[in-house]
């Protein structure tokens, strides 16, 4: 009988590269929108793992950099539409931080398309699916993150 790790490494060998994308979504809009997409049985690629925060304003630039350092191929921040933030203006502050991180990524030679901020409201299940599909498509086109490539 083969050990679990053997099976796992065998599987890893056969497996083609799949993007690892981290999503950080706000509790009130995008998380609920993703829930609606699930409840509505809308199909979308499974490559984005989401972390729930109360507001996109909670996202720390370091979380994004940490994710890329850990080998994420993409990061998605998704919150409410401007003006709809449950906490009035958290998404504006997140957007400001997003531009800062994007500038930083460009200057260290990391394609800034790997990091994206989107706005999906609680009633936009179909839009959530479209956003995820598009994010996964972008990351697939960009290929594996250069940070993981360097590590090999």
């Amino acid at each position: 009988m083969r050990s679990f790790s053997e099976v796992k490494s065998k599987m890893a060998d056969n497996k083609e590269w799949k993007p690892k994308i981290l999503g950080m979504v706000c509790n009130w809009c995008s998380y609920a929108g993703a829930d609606l997409a699930g409840g509505g049985r809308i199909q979308y690629p499974p490559d984005v793992r989401i972390i729930r925060v109360m507001c996109t304003g909670r996202f720390d630039s370091l979380f994004v950099l940490k994710a890329f350092a850990d080998g994420a191929d993409g990061v998605l921040i998704s919150g409410c539409h401007f003006g709809d933030c449950h906490y009035l203006e958290g998404n504006f502050k997140a957007a400001k931080r997003m531009f800062m991180v994007k500038r930083l990524m460009k200057s260290i030679g990391l394609d800034d398309r790997r990091f994206r901020m989107t706005f999906v409201s609680a009633s936009e299940g179909a839009k959530w699916a479209a956003v995820i599909t598009d994010v996964v498509k972008t990351i697939n086109e960009l290929g594996p993150s250069p940070i993981t490539e360097f590590r090999k």
Partner: peptide, 19 residues
């Protein structure tokens, strides 16, 4: 509890309960 302060704090000095 939105965490906007916690996401920004340059010193990491804000503890967001549960997040």
């Amino acid at each position: 509890g939105c965490g906007t302060c916690g996401g920004f704090c340059p010193g990491g000095a804000i503890w967001m309960q549960h997040f």
